[in-house]
Design a protein around this nucleic acid. Structure first.
Lengths: 133, 133
DNA sequence: ACCGTACTCAAGTGAACGCTTGACTATTCC
DNA sequence: GGAATAGTCAAGCGTTCACTTGAGTACGGT
């Protein structure tokens, strides 16, 4: 657990692997949805889940290994909560790629608009590398 | 390919499975990073990749099956490009959960601040379900 | 016509995943 | 103390994943 946190800090790439992998399972996403409404115990998370408690625990461990979830044990129940910061780091990766494409497409659009009613000036203008997307 | 697109429209949950699964591989993320800079051919995507072209193609097919990438073949080269909209749908799922937690934590914070210098009124106030996060 | 490039397909392989069962350990409640 | 609750550990099992190799197809250049 602590080791994962350390690895995640040292190697954000590896962390993204784990985060997206954790998000790829519909059951785990449902657990996260539940946790977004507030902390919950392991069995509480598994209640709507049609699988053994052991399986639920394994999912929780994967979520925890990714940093998306933290948990602490009080008495005999383990209470899990969602870590918004980890969620944000995944969001950021996606957002960066997305804005990159969108900006590029905007430039391409302008370029096309500019050259539409103008003869070729020989100026390369903004990059329009391959096919017009 | 078309079938995937259809499934994705009909079942957005299944789509999220595929999208996050596709994002979970570091090689595929690198391909997406490359594609965010502009369209590229299959072999171009595989160039920095230390694996067979067949393997690269399989990755491209997974990306395409998730809707993150589209491609069309001209002559003998297949040109791939990134689909910002699919990227956005993954981003949205994450963002919604995140804002949900953050808002809840904000309310909790206010609640704690309010009750800090006030005696217990018996009023339940905003939900503070379990442990103080 | 021929060669090299750029994919494409199919089968196989080892590792990782998702889950189960069975046993075992705290805690809590009566 | 004894039963029920909540979690934990380990082994096993079928499936899916990320490749590989070895083939074949279709262009494109000369």
């Amino acid at each position: 657990m602590l080791k994962h946190v350390l690895n995640n800090v040292l190697d954000p790439e590896l962390n993204l692997d784990r985060i997206f992998r954790a998000l790829a399972d519909p059951g785990r996403r449902r657990m996260l949805e539940r946790l977004s409404e507030g902390p919950a115990s392991v069995s509480e998370l598994g209640k709507p889940m049609a699988m053994s408690l052991a399986a639920v625990l394994q999912h929780v461990q994967i979520l925890e290994g990714s940093g998306l979830v933290q948990s602490r044990k009080l008495g005999r129940t383990r209470t899990c909560s969602l870590n918004a910061q980890t969620l944000r780091s995944a969001e950021r990766w996606i957002s960066e790629r997305r804005t990159f494409v969108e900006r590029r497409l905007d430039r391409l659009g302008e370029y096309l608009a500019d050259t539409a009613d103008q003869p070729d000036t020989g100026d390369a203008g903004p990059a329009a590398p391959h096919a017009p997307a």
